[in-house]
Structure formats: C-alpha cells, structure tokens
Design a protein around this nucleic acid. Sequence first.
DNA 1: GGCTGACATAGACAGATGTCAACATAGGTA
DNA 2: TACCTATGTTGACATCTGTCTATGTCAGCC
Lengths: 117, 117
Amino acid sequence: MSKPLPVLDVIETSCCAPLARAPIGEADAERVAAMFKALGDPVRLRLFSKVASSEGGEACVCDIQDVGVSQPTVSHHLKKLREAGLLESERRGSWVYYRLAPSALAVMADLLAPVRA
Amino acid sequence: MSKPLPVLDVIETSCCAPLARAPIGEADAERVAAMFKALGDPVRLRLFSKVASSEGGEACVCDIQDVGVSQPTVSHHLKKLREAGLLESERRGSWVYYRLAPSALAVMADLLAPVRA
DNA sequence: GGCTGACATAGACAGATGTCAACATAGGTA
DNA sequence: TACCTATGTTGACATCTGTCTATGTCAGCC
C-alpha cells in the first residue's frame, strides 16, 4: 500500500484508491463527496481558484471578494471551503488571509487519476 | 492562448488552466462547477467509481445499482452524471451500459493539478 | 473613549436537490 | 398475443443551498 499512516483527522495526503481503480467505499464516499461538493458551486470554485493561484500562496479576503455576490455571501462560501478542508484561514491585523490546505489538491487529483489500462 | 478551438458541446480533453495557476473565469467556472457538483453526492460518487473501476470500462446498471437507494433514484443519479458529461450510456438488449466519458477524468485531474512553485 | 474598515454571524426566503411510489417504455420469451 | 424483466420518467415531498439584509465582532486610528 502506498498509504503509510493516516495522519490527521481530515483526509491527509491520501484517502483511498483512485475512483477508477476500485469502487469507493460508503464512508469514504461521504467524505470525498463533501470535498467535490465544495467545488461544485461557481462562486466557490472562483474563490478557491483565486486563493490557490494567488502569489505567495495566500490571499486576503479583500483581494478575492469581487465575484459578483455580497460580502456576507463570500464569507459564507469561504466558510464552506474551510469546512470541506480545502482552505485554511488566519487573521493578521485587520485582515483575514486564506490559503490552500496543504494536501487538498493532491488528494483530489489522486482520486481522479486515470488508471492506465 | 492554449485553447485552440472548442471542440464539442461539453468540455473536451481540456478546458482551462489548472485552478492553482490562474483564477478561473466566470463562464468556465460555471461549466467546471457542474462537473464537480456531479461528484458532490455520495451516491453519485459511488456509482461513478463503480463504473470507472469496472472491468472492460463499462458496467450494466444492474451491476452497480446496489448503493442503498431505490432503482428510480439510481436512474436519476446516473442521468445527472450523464448530463454532467462524466458518463456515457448505451442500450444493448435489455440492459443499459454505462462507461466513463473519454476525457472526463483527465479534464478534472488537470484542473486540480498542483502548480509546482 | 468613539469611529471606521474588514470580516463573520443570524435570520429569512426562494429555489434547487435527493428521495420515493407510481407509472411508462423497451426488449426478451413464451 | 401476453407476460416478465430492466430501466427510465413523472410527480410529489421534505430538506438542503445560495443569497440577501441586518447586525455583531475585532483591530486599528482619531
């Protein structure tokens, strides 16, 4: 197995086999679906992409909140992304900075990895 | 631009830059979010994984419908996966076979590719 | 202290979503 | 023809979700 040890409470560095390798289990499906669901909204996807692509790996809310919805709605979506384990946040002075959760991208990319015949 | 020509009606073989490379545009976000949204339900994720991991690359509905919900609900979810461009279906005799849409996995995996610093 | 800016929370609301039972359809078999 | 099996469709329902306005909280500045 390429999964040495389950590290943290959320999905860390690895979760399960690629979706195309073996049928995902019921419990794993629940957790993984929550991650994909978080990206399943256009506004959240844009916020996530803005954070992920921002210089220095983090972005202040004020830098990314121009997505066509109200400020509370932005805050609501960022919370969802945090709860899904995709983003982390930290307050510094007046501003709150968001950055990618360490292995969020890798976990999802692994799940979607094509299985060479 | 690395997007020579939009080929089909859905996202074909490529859509846009990885989420972590540049902020995704509004229109692209709409289309991509629909794909992730389709995987954002545990039942759909399991159905998708069952099809994707099935031998020969395709599976009859009767082989995958044991996911804890009624048959109409399974049918409903498979339709959603089809509409999202993730699965294709074909009727052969009494049975309907589902298989992975050609580049579905690759498109999503590319979007989630980490951008090496 | 009071004020202002940045962000989060609470509550309300319309619309979307997941589920089921009932029905429809399509193909095989007799 | 009639019947059965496999699957899709319809309509109804409760719940979830995205959005807003209003309000709260926290930090800096006067």
